[in-house]
Each structure stands twice: as C-alpha cells, then as structure tokens.
Design a protein around this nucleic acid. Structure first.
Lengths: 134, 134
DNA sequence: AAAATACCCTACTTATTTAATAGAATTTAT
DNA sequence: ATAAATTCTATTAAATAAGTAGGGTATTTT
C-alpha cells in the first residue's frame, strides 16, 4: 500500500472520530496523524473528488465526512488511491487487463490461484469500513 | 506483483512440467512462455541463488528444478522477488518495519485489519505450490 | 472593507523501482 | 578448437512514489 493510501485511511479515521458534529482542519489532522501537511492537502482533495468528504473554505473551515464511517468501505478507498486490489491485472475486477504474455487465460494456473487470493482480500476489504479502524 | 515475479512463476511451472527428467534452456523457456530472454536469465539466476533450481553450463546445458514442484511454495517465490506479502510493513512477518508515523502500533486500527488480510493471503500462498499452477 | 484563515490547484523535484538491454566472460560437450 | 550455453556486470529508459513550492480562491472574523 502506498503511503498516500495509508495517510488517507488515517485522515478518514481522524474525521470519523468527530463525525457528524464538527469538522477538522488540514493542519490539525497533519499534526496529530503525522502526515506532511501539503501532501495531506492533495489526499483530502482526492477524497473530496471521490465523494467521501466535503469541505468548508475560509477561516474556521475544514473537512468533514459526508457519509457515516460504517458506510465507507476500505476497499473503495484502497482502489481510489492504489488502484487494483488484485495482485495480477488479469484477475482484477475493476482494473482488469489482459496479460500480453499469456496465450490462454482460462488455462493459466496463476490466474486460478491469484483469483482466490483476490476474492479473499476483496471480501475483507468490502466488509471492513472506516469504523473498523478507529 | 512485478512482472519479474510473474515470469519466475511461469518459468518454474515450465520446468515443473519436465521434472525430474530433463532440463530446459533459457531460450526455450523464453520463447514458449513469452518472456524476454535476457530478463529471464536474471530471473533464473535469482532462482538458482534461492536454491529452487540448478543449472548446467555449456552446450546441452540448461536449468532444472532442484525440488519437487509440490514442495515449492508460491509464497517463497513471491517473497524472493517482491518482498513482503503484507500490504503494510508493520504487519509483515518477514519484512517487518515499524511505522514512523504511528505512535502506538497496538492501538492502530489499520494494523488489525491488514493483519487479517495478510494472514489470509499468507495461508493460501504457503498452501499452494508450483504444482498448483501447472 | 480588510485581514486572516483555510481550502484549491498546478507544477516541479528527487529518489526509487521496474523492466528490460548489452556485452563480455566462463564453462562444457562434441 | 568451436559452438553452445550459462554467468556476471553495467547501463538505460520509463514509470511511480513521496513529497515540496507557491500562488489562487473562498469565507469568516474583526
């Protein structure tokens, strides 16, 4: 997992603790969660574009969760930042790509095993939510 | 998974088909498995250093498996080429690293979830062998 | 209205990793 | 000897990761 993705999880967890009452400023999250401030800004912006958080500009503004923590699936966030959950493109659900070096996907032994691994991981990632990482 | 690791799996699977009778030359594996020849050379060398294959130099030489296909665990190969199986260094068994940004690992929610995911994946990777990808 | 605050946006940088490629050296069979 | 094959070292090009920089825009407080 990229640092970016990990920071996103931590930022969401931080916002979840305040949900639904208050909002938090970038600087506060950065300080308390040990995330470089400017890097965090980019991350929060991505989370906003993804529809997970919203923001209020100006003095006293900040970020807040749009959805309840228990409705934000970890897998959604992972995909937003790191793309495929599968270890091979040819077994990815959302980021599928055909293997150029593989003549027959159905007969491919790797395909079978790594599909199982993907299914397992996917199940947990779509079952666990932000409220599970508080 | 890196291409290198994927190619390693395919090369091992190729050698497994011949096991234990004959050996194969780099050029043959490269051609039949669609792997760049010179890249494959490096991979086979790594597999040799790792103790999974052995080679015979000179005319009529080539590579062959040292161990039976059903004793080569996919996880071992994955670790050799791509390192940690875990998605976070702090939940890795063989490549553990402390998170610099995390004050308390025990209390970390991410830690708990991604430990579960690691356990699942690890179980399958140490259960499945080269004979499962033939 | 002005100043301060805080998000918004684009671009840049630096380091690392990935995926090869090149070429020569070494070893072995015939 | 020579042809065939592995072994070793070095290089390269492209992509990705992780952050940095600096200003622009919107809002609130005074």
């Amino acid at each position: 997992m990229s640092k970016k993705c990990k920071y996103a999880f931590k930022a969401l967890a931080h916002l979840a603790k305040r949900y639904p009452d208050t909002h938090c400023q970038t600087a506060e999250i950065a300080r308390l969660e040990n995330i470089p401030r400017k890097f965090l800004e980019l991350i929060l912006l991505d989370l906003k574009k993804g529809g997970f958080v919203n923001s209020k500009q100006g003095a006293g503004g900040g970020y807040y969760l749009v959805k309840a923590p228990e409705t934000i699936l970890l897998g959604e966030i992972y995909r937003l930042f790191d793309g495929a959950i599968a270890l091979l493109p040819c077994v990815s659900l959302k980021f599928y790509e055909k293997c150029k070096d593989c003549p027959d996907e159905v007969a491919c032994g790797l395909n079978r095993v790594f599909l199982q691994i993907r299914d397992q991981t996917l199940k947990l990632m779509l079952e666990k939510t932000v409220s599970d990482i508080l």
